[in-house]
Amino acid sequence: EIYLYIAICLLIIVAYDFFFTVISINGAGLITSMISKGIARCFLWMNTKAVNRTILRFSGVAIILALICWWLGALWIGFFLSLLSDHTAVMDASSATAAPTIDKFYFSGYMLSTLGNGDFVPGSSGWKVMTAIFSFSGFIFITTGMTYLISVSSAVLHKRSLALFIANLLYVKDEGDKVQAVIRNGDQLRNMINKHNQNHLAYPIVHYFYSTDETTSLAPNLARIDQLLVDALKNNVDSNTLHPLYHSMNSYLHTVNGTFV
């Protein structure tokens, strides 16, 4: 019975963590956050020992792979442990004998991937229902997880576009021209920063996708434009346009301050 209790606890934890991360649009679950932060820290540490930023390119991919392993792995182990709690939970279809431990592990993985039951059958009506529930769970986890990852890549692309947009705007020598360029594109810039801010809240993992070059890195470009904004507002340059932009930047700083720095 101990296996059943462990299985129930594990399944509740992974289901909460998964659905909070993927569906709530309010950030990531506790374990997902811990995994993401831990891997990102490893990459940042390796970056301090490296000559260039190439290693950081793999941070986002590593986090996504680790999260898939955590979500699907925990679901698989949870199902496997629940099968272990009953000796006759899984039967060999041809010999009608109870399946050994390794075959229960195979059966649970086979069911979760919705491939079928792999020459084994559930041992009772209760386990038949449980098997159907787990098969649906595997299907839901895989499809919803993939949809989430597509949204994340779209948010990462937006992050890079924003960085590039700012870098392009500031690609003039004169400070006055830079301010004028920001004023001319104030609305678009504000919308892009706001969208990135919302992406940050919905998909915190986007913070750990790093760019190798400075032009497409958001942090240095945002720091540059913020300094420009602060100086321009001190000199009372077109505050009607710059104040909303400054406010949008404040919202972003508020989001990042609470979560990442």
């Binding site: 990459f43 940042l44 970056n47 301090t48 930023r53 950081l56 913070h207 790093y210 890195s217 958001l218 942090a219 240095p220 945002l222 720091a223 913020d226 602060v230 700083l253 990042v256 301050n257 990442f260 720095v261």
Partner: peptide, 18 residues
């Protein structure tokens, strides 16, 4: 000031401190 310190932290969290 606080704003500068915040951006310093953001740059650090983006791997730009080394």
């Amino acid at each position: 000031d606080i704003r500068k310190a915040l951006f310093k932290d953001i740059l650090k969290s983006d791997g730009w401190d080394s």
